[in-house]
């Protein structure tokens, strides 16, 4: 040590900078703080109330209506809203309100399971590809490109007609599973790419280097450092995809290869209504309104959650 330049003493310095920090934040861990932040957001409460209502609707439709959504009375085809059927009747004379209530379960099931499946498969693949790099990355990326290269509708037609002859009546569980798996198989590369890009970026961060220098194993590095910092984009992606997947389900239904009668879903209702929009607008409008509200609720929730668990945004 030649000289220690005693002009400025180090310890206890920088009081002016410390003062700028607000005292309210940072009492608990990430999740505690995130929850505290979330509780103060009206958007979060609106979105979760809507989602709660939708979930109750999906689980116990009889709480909302006692009308059988499958009972058709052709004499009442296209009837306007009335006390008898509050939202009117569709082409086949079925109660639109009852059908919309009963349509919640299959619609939400497909949307949720497809988002969940896509994110789980895609994020796992992207995490491994981005973190391991080298040939693993090459392999996962190329396989992903093959699946992403398939046009969605063409891929859906090929997969679903292979398993079901067109026009055949199939059970609800079976067709929902098939539609979900079809969507996951054709969409996971999107989540994989988002996760891979995020993992690649985070792997290069200095705090990952510091953790490796401390001797942290791959599990700790991925679990504590990479995953928490890459989750936000994937969560946002999942909420957006929730709506896209409901739309995809409707598209497959429209083509006669997705959900179909006797299953009731908003997508099925919309595709059925498309032929006679001018005559029976309520048959298109009301299921579409339910769809929009559901998608919006999930997007708002995703937005609020992302804001709460990203400390940089605070």
């Amino acid at each position: 040590m030649t000289d220690t330049a005693p002009a400025l003493r180090a310890r206890g310095a920088e009081p002016d900078e410390a003062a700028a920090v607000d005292e309210s934040a940072g009492r608990g861990g990430l999740w505690v703080d995130g929850w505290a932040q979330l509780r103060r957001r009206p958007l979060f409460w609106i979105a979760s109330t809507l989602i709660l209502v939708l979930l109750v609707m999906a689980l116990w439709p009889s709480l909302f209506t006692s009308v059988d959504p499958r009972v058709a009375d052709l004499a009442l085809s296209g009837a306007d809203p009335s006390p008898d059927a509050v939202l009117g009747r569709d082409l086949q004379g079925r109660d639109i309100y009852a059908r919309a209530i009963h349509g919640a379960a299959p619609t939400l099931t497909v949307g949720l399971l497809a988002s969940l499946g896509t994110v789980l498969v895609g994020a796992m693949a992207g995490l491994v590809a981005g973190y391991r790099g080298s040939w693993v990355d090459g392999l996962v990326s190329r396989v992903g490109e093959v699946f992403a290269g398939l046009p969605f509708i063409l891929g859906g037609i090929v997969i679903l007609t292979t398993f079901n002859q067109p026009g055949r009546i199939v059970g609800e569980v079976r067709i929902v599973t098939q539609v979900v798996l079809t969507i996951v198989v054709l969409s996971w590369p999107l989540a994989m790419r988002i996760m891979r890009a995020a993992a690649l970026e985070i792997s290069q961060q200095d705090y990952v280097k510091a953790a490796r220098a401390l001797g942290a194993g791959p599990l700790r590095i991925v679990g504590r450092h990479i995953l928490p910092n890459t989750l936000a984009p994937v969560l946002v992606f999942a909420t957006i995809q929730f709506g896209v997947f409901i739309g995809a389900e409707a598209a497959l239904s429209f083509l006669g290869i997705g959900l179909r009668d006797p299953v009731v879903s908003w997508g099925v209702m919309i595709s059925e209504a498309q032929e006679r929009v001018a005559d029976i607008p309520q048959a298109l409008f009301f299921p579409a309104a339910f769809l929009v509200v559901a998608v919006l609720a999930f997007v708002m929730l995703g937005d609020a959650v992302r804001d709460a668990f990203d400390p940089r945004g605070r």
């Binding site: 990430l30 961060q205 200095d206 705090y207 280097k209 510091a210 220098a213 504590r224 450092h225 928490p228 910092n229 400390p311 940089r312």
Partner: peptide
């Protein structure tokens, strides 16, 4: 090791 950039050397979520 002490790294160069104090803005990227600390995990923002911890």
């Amino acid at each position: 090791i002490v790294l160069q950039d104090p803005y990227t050397s600390l995990n923002p979520r911890r």
